[in-house]
Design a protein around this nucleic acid. Structure first.
Lengths: 228, 228, 228, 228
DNA sequence: AATGAATGAGGGTTCATTCAT
DNA sequence: AATGAATGAACCCTCATTCAT
């Protein structure tokens, strides 16, 4: 997904022929702006500026700031869902499949920081806008079903603990991957460590793989002892 | 520890006697406002409204919106640092000490959501304001040193792996605890699970304890096999 | 006579076959909108919305907002003129004929509030648009001629005073009937009395009949004494 | 009440010393604008322009367009109430007192067209704003009480009919006086008669006096015969 | 030490109209 | 004959800040 447009490409055309392209350009610019500044602070003018159009045109296409924002959110989720569909987990042994899921997720967040920022932004807004959009409320990310299937295979092979909920595994993967992006500035500053797409990404990703696989693969006995 | 602690602790009192109290009230109101809406979207007027004062007075006390924000951030970090200082880890066995750290961190985030929101907000702003404040750039949170000491004790006792960096442990603890708060709205909506201070907090906290202790306590051999 | 007649009589039908029908639908919707909000505040978009067409189409049919408005005004006057033509005054004794005129006028205003609102609106605009339309400037409402004829009959029969101008009679009838509709909200609120189509319409109409007939029927001597 | 300001008087002063004067100037300008164009069509910018200030300042003083409008309405009603208080009806015989009330009302509307236009405008808006203002909802215009007292005196003296409600008398007076102003443009155009403050004001006012006095003074028997 | 007054900039949205097709 | 696309202007309101007192 190309978020960075060369402004020159569109500067000349006053009246773009295709409204589809216009819509897409606005959506891309809005994605950047909303990801960059959050819903409230994002400016319709800034979005217009990024696309060489006007606020009026944006409202013509999307109706309002909130509707535009919801379109952005919807597309962002659609994109990650699409990417998740590309994973070929059935070809891999359970352990390798988990590793792939973790690495995919970790890398996706690093490569698509805008997605992470949008999700964070929506959470900072307490999910206000998501609540109002039936389409977004109905969202479900297939990654958890895939994850469940892999875990089931692993359990059948005696490789994974059976007292761990797949959703908790997903949460751990998401949390550890997101944190790398969401907290890169404060964490980086306070602990002097490069985060996000900077520094030793491979190492930090490997740590997450390690955490998740260790957890999933530990024996039940050990788990019991940890719980008092 | 009091759950759901509100920073706006002086909202009830109307006309404070001293300028000190005035300053404190403004700081408390600003904490709430900045946490609630983020830096850009926060309104000086709203802060004034929460304190029965005026925008002019706030500028008189703090100089500008950004300086006020930095004061808020500084105090928020000072408060968690203080709380971390209360932990009495030396009295505990390594394993129990780690458990206490994880639970403390998890609970602190749940109870002090405003702190989490401020940190997220500053990261969404890419650390812009933190960078400009020498005091904040010099921030250090003692928790990592305490954590290091505990891990060292655990290693000496042959309980913990020795190839894990304490900072990575802290990151895992912070990530898993923060995610519970930061992503409660989207995650909750998409996966139909109560997050944050709602739902089965104890279970979710126990999951985090389990993840961290399993990881720390796994054998080196197992770890080696996981890294290809 | 149908009380509460709505000009928006075709709102239900969706896609009309002929451009004629389209024009009529737009006119009806425009009547409602202009009556409801006044010329300036009326929105071409709202009119388009009421007809499931677009602003562009309306301009295509009518040329501009003002031309549309003038068409609306013209039709509104044409309609009351038509209704006035239905009165069969020659069959009635002078006194009864006057009563019928008063009651017709009073009821017409109550039932066709949109007409009253359009007239008021045009007056609030100081007749700007009417002035520009030759057709509207040439408007004549036959009611006054009919009224004159009745008064003449009444005078010949010695029933009515002869020093009263028919136009003043018409003005009194119109004023008293219009006020009931035009000032229903402020008058109703301030004096706690239901106005317009609500409350005791029959009583209020009877008051107007009483006023007009008393005035017309009073003796010249009495009138002279009243004028100092 | 001076609605027409010489703009020169205030053009030089950038920062008026007295906020009171500023408030008054804005209120005066707003009165003119709202009376001229109605609530919806009135422009905050135009009001600002009339006072050499800015929209922001007006909002600073009045909070919003609607609050400003309500202040205008309130002042307009306060002014007519004040004027009504100046009437010295007790010194006059009942018949003369009624004549004075009719003439006062008629003249007030002619001289204070802005008041009539505001009232009409609020009615065109269906009383929306008045409903929201407790102060305006509580309005009562003392003229009706004065009128009642005079009518009572007249009845006691055997001069007036006793089956007429004072409120209906007030309504007739108001209706006939208002119509002269409110419908001056359409009525004038259609019937070629000067209305409002133009033409033979004295004659038209005398007609209203005649109508009201004739009605009030007619015998009961006559009235009975008119009601079928 | 403290504050009411004032303001320029920018916020999102609605508007009537134009124009190429 | 009819319409989707596009736009510049104007709409009301909120903002953080300045300044005289």
């Amino acid at each position: 997904m190309a978020l960075q447009f060369s402004p020159d490409r569109t500067l000349a055309m006053r009246k773009p022929k295709s409204p589809e392209a216009n819509r897409a350009r606005i959506l891309a610019a809005a994605t950047t702006e909303f990801a960059e500044r959050g819903y409230d602070a994002a400016s319709m003018d800034a979005i217009a500026g990024r696309t060489n159009t006007t606020r009026a045109l944006i409202n013509y296409y999307f109706g309002s700031k909130e509707k535009l924002y919801l379109s952005v959110l919807q597309q962002a989720y659609a994109e990650i869902r699409e990417a998740e569909n590309e994973l070929r987990l059935d070809d891999l042994a359970p352990l390798e499949a988990i590793r792939r899921i973790v690495e995919f997720t970790y890398d996706y967040y690093v490569a698509h920081e805008y997605f992470v920022r949008l999700v964070v932004s929506e959470n900072q807004a307490k999910g206000t806008h998501m609540k109002r959009s039936p389409a977004l409320r109905r969202l479900n990310r297939p990654i958890v079903e895939r994850l469940s299937a892999v875990i089931e295979r692993g359990r059948a092979a005696g490789l994974f603990r059976s007292d761990i909920e797949p959703l908790d595994v997903h949460m751990a993967i998401a949390a550890l991957g997101m944190f790398n992006v969401t907290n890169q500035f404060t964490f980086g500053t306070i602990f002097q460590r490069e985060m996000g797409a900077k520094g030793d990404v491979a190492h930090r990703r490997q740590v997450v793989v390690d955490i998740v696989l260790t957890w999933l693969g530990s024996t039940r006995a050990a788990a019991r002892s940890r719980a008092h």
